[in-house]
Computed example of a mutant assay.
Amino acid sequence: MYEGVVQDLIDELGRLPGVGPKSAQRIAFHLLQADPVDVRRLADVLIEVKAKVKFCSICFNVSEDEQCRICRDPRRDPTVLCVVEEYKDVVAIERTREYRGRYHVLGGAISPIDGIGPEQLRIRELMTRLADGTITETILATDPNLEGEATATYLTRMLKPIGLRVTRLASGLPVGGDLEYADEVTLGRAFAGRRSADD
């Protein structure tokens, strides 16, 4: 334990996702030793991002405008919608340069243990977007874990009666991985999604 404001800084840094007590302490001491100009620039950017960044009114991705650049882009396919859990998932998919449709960010995944049910996600807004009939395919790109699977299953049950084509991202074994280290779900999906060796 440190005195006053130093401990306050360590505590606040430790509240960030993925930052444990040791990392928080290391970052705090880095900031203490850093040039005051660099620290001020970091503080200014943190304040500016909170003031300027909001959620897109259509897909709920992060944006500095009313609509994000993807929703404003007329070259994107308006008939295909990729449903993701978080904003970072949009960035990951965009990096592949394989997808040219639009997105819908749920804001999380169904997780009863964390008190997150369908009501806490942007599922109502998703259903509103699908109501006009423009979208013909919905790609469920939730994480391949228990919460992501629960969310995808829930959404599939809601979307199938509408007559939409509902697809899931292929998943299975990573390139360079060893079978012995694969969990049952990953290995099971790899078997279910197998394809011809000629492809």
Rank of each mutant, 00 (worst) to 15 (best):
R97W: 09
E3T: 05
R129A: 03
L179R: 08
T79W: 07
G163H: 04
E66I: 14
D143K: 09
S196V: 01
L155F: 13
N61A: 09
D114G: 07
R165T: 11
L13A: 01
L173I: 14
R165A: 06
L42I: 11
E94W: 09
E85T: 09
G101T: 04
G188P: 12
Y181M: 09
L173H: 04
P21V: 00
G115Q: 08
G4I: 11
G188K: 13
T167Y: 03
M1E: 02
T136F: 06
T138H: 07
R72E: 11
A24N: 01
R122S: 13
I93P: 05
E149C: 02
F60G: 07
R76S: 05
L9P: 01
K52H: 15
C56E: 04
K52C: 08
L13H: 00
I113H: 12
V45D: 00
L121D: 05
V91I: 13
T128P: 08
S63H: 05
R95Y: 06
I139Y: 03
L9V: 02
T79Q: 05
V105N: 07
Q33L: 13
P36I: 15
L126M: 08
E147R: 12
V6P: 00
V37F: 09
A109F: 14
A170Y: 08
L9K: 02
A28H: 03
C56M: 05
R129Y: 06
D183E: 03
D183G: 02
L169C: 04
I135A: 02
A34N: 10
Q120M: 10
A150I: 12
C68P: 10
K88G: 15
